[in-house]
Design a protein around this nucleic acid. Structure first.
Lengths: 236, 236
DNA sequence: ACCTGAACACCGTTCAAGT
DNA sequence: ACCTGAACACCGTTCAAGT
């Protein structure tokens, strides 16, 4: 007797290289759960309760199996987390971009940042380091193509892309850290509270800026900074 | 009877704002463990076995107490992890820097990167977002001061510092991701393996570069990229 | 081929009680 | 003031067995 599959329509299997094509007669025990259900459940948990709420046991309960059944569809928890990224780019409309290639680089980078700003959990998972969402690749292509249109070689353009990505990513990571700290205002703060009067001689600028440090952090404008970075990268 | 303190010399307490000064007569039960022992144990575990090997229970066992005793010295595990950073900068000699302020910005950034490259675990903990090591502040000061010497206002210099830090940090994070992947060669790779022949029209540059992508990743030279970024930031 | 159950070796943190 | 013990509510993953 088949377990209730709810609104999950039967899907095509987890990949084209799987040998589960039409004509094949299935052997062995029939599948009860699909990789997609697992990934969808994990994504739902992350969106509602954060990355830390995802556990193999919890996901299993959500799709109605045992924890160990998941290991037939994903290698381990990290792989499951990376797979939750797939399809996320498609949820955001693709913006109109300016004609000037330098402006296109900048606009795409700013768009990337804005989109990810609205999906904080994606940032956490991206740190695992692999792209699993095909729908996001147009942004990488766009930045590289526009950089080439500005006169960089493809190799230089790839390097420029990486640097731009680091600026986008860094802002997201440390903004998240700030958000977390303001969510827990009683947590001990170390910098710039760390500075004492004796440091004024050694660290004059930091001492002078200490009181305004948080304010400056909030005032950091990624677009402005990315503009400067792009200028530097394209003038090489 | 006092518990064996081994080579841990008696230390001054966890901070100046603690009211544990000389003249004070201690009240209540005497301390058995010091915050420093806890942090040192945590750091040792991280260095030998990685951040994931640290647990409150493990640290407690290492210093010879119960897990709960730790909570009298640190707020929670995150705070303990952040405290492991303190003192790390002092283990590295301070380099000689060039005279030209633009070169000083660049050299300091490259130094930051090189030092952290040798302490991969520090990068993981830094993502928690707070600086707890006074010994590292000279680099922040140096970059800001040199940027000011190049004509930026202090506020602009702080923004420039952040941007530079993002480039350094991004490289470290994604290099770690690559290292992890090469340590597990049987793990499924998603990009650029994700690309199929139909994508060639939509993603021409990525398709053309796919075969060389890993090679390009390895060839990424932070110094070169930071030089371009610094150029952009200082020409604003 | 896919799934289950039991087990292994762990977690962070709260609470009430002790010295 | 500082530490302990017991408990709560969990973890990821391996292994051997079942259908």
């Amino acid at each position: 007797m088949r377990h209730d599959a709810r609104e999950n329509a039967p899907v095509a299997g987890k990949g084209s290289a799987e040998g589960r094509a039409e004509g094949r007669k299935p052997v062995g025990r029939p599948r009860r759960i699909e990789a997609r259900q697992i990934v969808d459940a994990a994504r739902r948990i992350i969106q509602e309760e954060g990355v830390d709420a995802v556990s193999m046991r919890r996901v299993a309960k959500e799709v109605g199996t045992t924890p160990m059944a998941l290991y037939h569809h994903v290698r381990d928890k990290d792989e499951l987390l990376m797979l939750t990224l797939s399809g996320m780019a498609a949820t955001v409309p693709r913006p109109a971009l300016p004609d000037d290639p330098r402006e296109r680089v900048l606009a795409t980078a700013v768009h990337m940042h804005a989109v990810l700003r609205g999906m904080p959990w994606v940032v956490e998972v991206l740190g695992l380091g692999d792209l699993t969402d095909k729908g996001a690749l147009w942004m990488v292509e766009e930045i590289i193509a526009s950089a080439v249109a500005c006169g960089l070689t493809p190799d230089e353009a790839v390097r420029a892309y990486r640097t731009i990505w680091y600026c986008v990513y860094g802002d997201l990571v440390f903004r998240r850290a700030v958000d977390r700290r303001t969510a827990e205002p009683d947590r001990k703060r170390y910098f710039p509270a760390l500075l004492s009067d004796e440091d004024a001689a050694e660290l004059p600028h930091l001492t002078a800026l200490a009181d305004r440090w948080e304010q400056l952090t909030e005032a950091y404008d990624v677009r402005e900074q990315l503009a400067a970075v792009v200028t530097g990268l394209l003038s090489a």
